[in-house]
Amino acid sequence: MGFKLLSKLLVYLTASIMAIASPLAFSVDSSGEYPTVSEIPVGEVRLYQIADGVWSHIATQSFDGAVYPSNGLIVRDGDELLLIDTAWGAKNTAALLAEIEKQIGLPVTRAVSTHFHDDRVGGVDVLRAAGVATYASPSTRRLAEVEGNEIPTHSLEGLSSSGDAVRFGPVELFYPGAAHSTDNLIVYVPSASVLYGGCAIYELSRTSAGNVADADLAEWPTSIERIQQHYPEAQFVIPGHGLPGGLDLLKHTTNVVKAHTNRSVVE
């Protein structure tokens, strides 16, 4: 069995187990497998329904001669939608809004960016022009300005110390501490036991640490421990890039980060 097929099978099995364990909360999309990078042309966006009122959005972007996937989250909030992270750029984010209108038909009224990198804030200006209120932590807003990236308009308070959590509509926002970046936030959907790890969490097929220019490698494993301790009931975990899975993604990420750190020390 090929690795790609095995990865998709694991996603399907995880979703099936969740649907059985929580039949009222989960209505997993039966329309197909989780979209992969090879299936999404740059400039297009796919939506994948995880649970009743919960979707991931998947886009792709060219970077350094390669094409990478990027995940975000959409959560229903009454007759409105909360968006977590842009679709990595203005063109993708405009396509995301169009796809949401086509498939869901509810307005996106608020959006949260989970850290300051372009795959999370690139497209904020498109959201703002569409009347979406954009939010991020003060740290993310400051770092985005320093980096020359787009800056969300509103500040999220109460997320300055490791372990801080605040309720934001249908989700809980959690600051686990520094990891992929010093400002990275985690998003949890309690009604569906869905954990969105953003770039602080890796997919299972990833074996290298990737972009760690703004990471705190020493603190990252401790931050992941905080996530595990705060959300032990999480059933569906979405990484910032690639295929979702279960809580095993947290341990896998820790292993990859520690291996990278150990290699760096040896070198």
Rank of each mutant, 00 (worst) to 15 (best):
G148N: 10
S155L: 11
T153M: 11
R128Q: 13
L10F: 14
T207Y: 10
V237R: 01
L96Q: 02
V45C: 03
P138V: 09
I201R: 02
L247V: 14
V166Q: 10
A234F: 03
V237L: 06
A111S: 14
P23F: 09
S205A: 10
G210V: 06
V126I: 08
G163F: 05
D214W: 05
E80K: 09
Y68W: 05
V212R: 05
A218Q: 14
Y12L: 09
Q103F: 15
S208W: 09
E203Q: 06
G65K: 10
A179C: 04
A215Y: 05
A218F: 11
I40Y: 06
P107L: 08
N211A: 13
V194K: 01
S31F: 10
A98K: 11
A90K: 09
A209C: 04
D85C: 00
A209S: 09
A178N: 09
L6E: 15
G240R: 04
S16D: 09
G53E: 10
V121P: 03
G65Y: 07
I74C: 03
R141D: 02
I40D: 05
A209R: 09
D183Q: 01
F3H: 07
A129H: 11
H154N: 09
Q49I: 08
A136C: 06
L185S: 05
L10K: 13
L96G: 02
T14C: 11
V237Y: 02
V171A: 06
T36D: 15
G210C: 05
P69Y: 15
V67T: 15
G163Q: 06
V42C: 08
V108Y: 02
S31W: 10
V171N: 02
V108L: 09
T261E: 12
L243D: 14
A144V: 07
I50L: 09
V237Q: 00
L106W: 07
G242F: 04
G240C: 00
T207K: 14
L185N: 04
A111Q: 07
T93R: 01
N184I: 06
G2E: 15
S70G: 04
S113H: 13
P232W: 07
D29E: 11
T207C: 06
S205Y: 09
T254D: 11
A144M: 03
L106M: 14
V194L: 09
A178R: 11
P138A: 09
A133R: 13
Y68I: 15
Y175S: 01
A25K: 15
T261I: 12
H117N: 03
D79Q: 10
P152F: 02
D77V: 04
P176T: 03
S70F: 05
H260E: 14
S27N: 09
V112I: 10
L5N: 15
D164W: 04
I186M: 06
D77P: 00
D118M: 06
V194D: 01
V171Y: 03
L243M: 14
Y231Q: 01
G89D: 04
P176K: 01
M18K: 12
A178C: 04
V132N: 02
K102N: 12
S264Q: 14
E44S: 13
N184F: 00
V75L: 06
Q61V: 15
L83Y: 01
Y135K: 00
T207N: 14
E233P: 04
S137C: 02
N92A: 06
P69W: 15
G89E: 01
P176S: 04
S208A: 11
A51W: 08
P23R: 12
F3C: 07
S223H: 04
Q235K: 10
G245E: 02
Q228G: 10
Y188C: 04
Y48Q: 12
E233L: 12
V28A: 13
R110A: 13
F236C: 09
P69V: 15
P239E: 00
Y68N: 08
R206S: 15
S38A: 11
E145G: 13
R76Y: 06
D85G: 01
